[in-house]
Amino acid sequence: MISAVVFDAFGTIVRIGQRTSPYVALIREGRRQGVAINPGLTGLAMRTSLSFDELASRLGIVLSPSKREELNRALELELSSIEPYPEAVEAVSRLQNAGIKLGICSNLAAPYGSIVRRLFPEMDGYAFSFELGVMKPNPSIYHCVCNQMEVEPGHCFSADMCRVLMIGDSPRCDRDGPRSVGIMGFHLDRRGQGSIKNLQQFVKLVIAHNRKSTSVS
């Protein structure tokens, strides 16, 4: 039986309607100023709850009042454009009605977390990188969402035990990473080139599997 499903957030259940990429713009501004920003620091926004001012200070970037206003305006514009995929709302409803616990596990910056929670407020678990200080595919982030859902990963190849599934648009973070801790991860390829092309298809597979398991038992 499949007892729980974990969703990635962006590109899976929510999308950005108007992408302004404010954090990319901040990094670009730092490089324009000659600030050396190593790859480890570029993910800092997704591992902390720092504001733009605090993040810029940590990175050694000086923001003028006009640049600060520009970046915050870009952030607000992007946040206001976030919306759920229509099929995601239906998928969540169908799985909940089938008695399956649901969670969201995502790499994102703090301002985006509240939006995701508002759009999907009745999940059984949330594991966001900015709150935990680690990013997918770090094993601890998957364990965190499973702990909140009160399910145990580690049985992805067992037909006789309760299993946890995850789906998302990143093969590395949403398929391979989960599988390393025993969660059966699936890659959602909306371009239609993978085995899972949309959430409707995924939900049908999950529900059909549990019906078959119930009838066999």
Rank of each mutant, 00 (worst) to 15 (best):
M161Q: 15
G113F: 07
R19G: 00
A91K: 06
S93H: 12
R94S: 05
E150C: 11
R172K: 14
S64C: 03
E131T: 06
K67G: 00
D176H: 10
A159T: 14
G177I: 05
S195A: 10
F7I: 02
F128Y: 12
A91M: 04
A159G: 13
R94W: 01
S213I: 11
L63P: 11
H209C: 01
V5S: 08
G192C: 07
I104V: 15
N147A: 14
R58E: 09
R191D: 05
T20P: 01
Q193R: 14
M135V: 11
K101V: 08
S215C: 11
E90L: 15
S64R: 08
V134T: 10
K212Q: 12
R172V: 13
S217D: 12
F130N: 01
Y112K: 09
V35Y: 06
E76S: 13
N97V: 00
D124V: 00
F52E: 00
T48H: 11
F7A: 01
V14Q: 00
Q193C: 09
I37A: 02
L63N: 06
L41N: 12
S66G: 02
L59N: 05
E83Q: 14
N97C: 03
C162W: 04
I16G: 02
R175G: 02
V5K: 03
L41W: 14
Y23C: 03
A56L: 03
Q193T: 15
R190T: 07
C173M: 13
G11D: 01
V6W: 03
E131R: 10
L102C: 03
I100S: 08
A91E: 00
L205V: 09
G192F: 10
V181Q: 04
Q201D: 11
F130H: 10
L41Y: 14
G182S: 05
I13W: 07
A91H: 02
A36R: 15
V134H: 13
G182W: 02
I27D: 01
V62A: 12
M184K: 15
S195M: 09
V216D: 09
R118T: 12
N107C: 08
R68E: 01
M123E: 03
A36S: 14
E69Y: 10
F10E: 00
L63S: 03
K101S: 15
